[in-house]
Structures are given as C-alpha cells and as structure tokens.
Design a protein around this nucleic acid. Structure first.
Length: 196
DNA sequence: CCTGCGATATTCT
DNA sequence: GAATATCGCAGGC
C-alpha cells in the first residue's frame, strides 16, 4: 500500500528513521524495480549547514521547499544523481537522502542499468555486479532504479513513476544511528540511520 | 584488508 | 578557482 501525505509532513529526522524497512518503487521505461530502504540521512532547512537548503531556495534546491511527499533529485560530482524524499511543510526545505536499498524486484534490470552505464571514460569492465552491490549507495541506487532529473519534483503520493509503499518498519533494536557520510559541515549530528 | 586518486559538471566564493 | 550529500580502480599491506 502506497504511503500517503501525513507520513511525509513530519520532521525529516522522524521520517528518515521511519523510512527504514519501507519499499521504494519505480516504474521507468515500462520497467518496475523495487527495494527495501536500509540507509537514510536527514537534511534540515536553515539550521543545518550540510543541507542544500541551508541558504534558502535556489534553482537547484527548489523542490526541497515543496510540501513533504515530493521527490528531490540532484546532480552531484558531475556524474551521479541522488534521490531524496522531501518532508515537512511547504517552504521548510527538509529532505531525506535515500542512501541504500536492498533490491527485491527487477534485479536483472538493475544489473543491466548498473553494467551498461559507463561511469568512467573507459567502458565499464565486463563483470557481474553482486546483488548486494546493485544499490548500496546513493549514486548506485539512482542508476539501478532508473532515477534521473526527469523525476525531480515528482509527487510521491500520486506519481506514476516513483513512490513508497508501507513495507515492514524496523524495531529500534534493528536500527543504528550515526553521523552523516561525505559532508564537512554540521558533521556532529547523528542523522544517518542504517539497518544493522 | 586498507588508502589514495581521477572523472566530471554545477554551484559557490 | 575551490568545493561537492560519489564511485570504482589501482596499489600497498
């Protein structure tokens, strides 16, 4: 069952914790892929120097300021896209970065996308990507699920290309909170949640 | 196992 | 010019 409005209107940290165990689904180019969310990070609005929303709206971060329940997809390192779930109320600028999923549907399509995509100038070496490595990072996850800039700003509550389903929420004993990865500002907050 | 680095484009200083 | 919410490969242990 698709997750709806009230889930997303809460604080980004609450939503990030609650997203673990939920199911992320995409239907792109007629291909359905899905996975269980196993790693998330919360990014707040003005009070979080690591957040894209820290200095207010810009052309890039605009979708972050939509009402909770939209997608924010940004381009990073000139090469990758990252998928975020916008949370809170319109104008707040909060979002949750989905950092990893456990693939559950469409694994061969994920593998094909991850293999055919030349990350380096040179073609990617012919190799088999292990199941566990298909979507165990924000850039990999976007490639595996077919997420690109065309999904930026999509409404997850009614969209036809990307949405969230209830899945099986995790107990506190199954969840660990740590500092966020890959940032240099506001590093002290334990706003990353991961399945043990 | 680990550490370091290049690729690549947009944003920020 | 520098930094960036990344990734995969090379090289050393």
């Amino acid at each position: 069952m698709r997750i709806s409005s009230s889930f997303f209107r809460r604080d980004a940290r609450t939503v990030a914790r609650d997203l673990l165990g939920r199911t992320l689904v995409t239907v792109v180019d007629g291909v359905r892929t899905a996975g269980t969310i196993i790693e998330t990070e919360a990014y707040l609005g003005s009070d979080d120097a690591a957040s894209h929303a820290h200095r207010g709206p810009t052309p890039r971060n605009g979708p972050m300021f939509l009402e909770g329940g939209h997608a924010y997809v940004y381009f990073i390192y000139g090469m990758y896209h990252c998928f975020n779930v916008v949370t809170g109320s319109a104008g707040e600028g909060e979002a949750v970065l989905i950092r990893a999923i456990e693939p559950i549907e469409g694994l061969e399509h994920m593998r094909q996308r991850r293999t055919e995509r030349a990350v380096r100038t040179r073609p990617v070496a012919a190799r088999t990507v292990a199941d566990g490595a298909l979507a165990n990072g924000p850039g990999k996850l976007a490639i595996a699920l077919g997420i690109g800039p065309e999904l930026n700003g999509e409404d997850l509550r009614s969209g036809r290309r990307v949405w969230l389903e209830a899945g099986v929420p995790l107990n506190d004993a199954e969840v660990e909170a740590t500092q966020r990865i890959g940032i240099t500002k506001s590093v002290e907050h334990p706003w990353r949640w991961v399945r043990r």
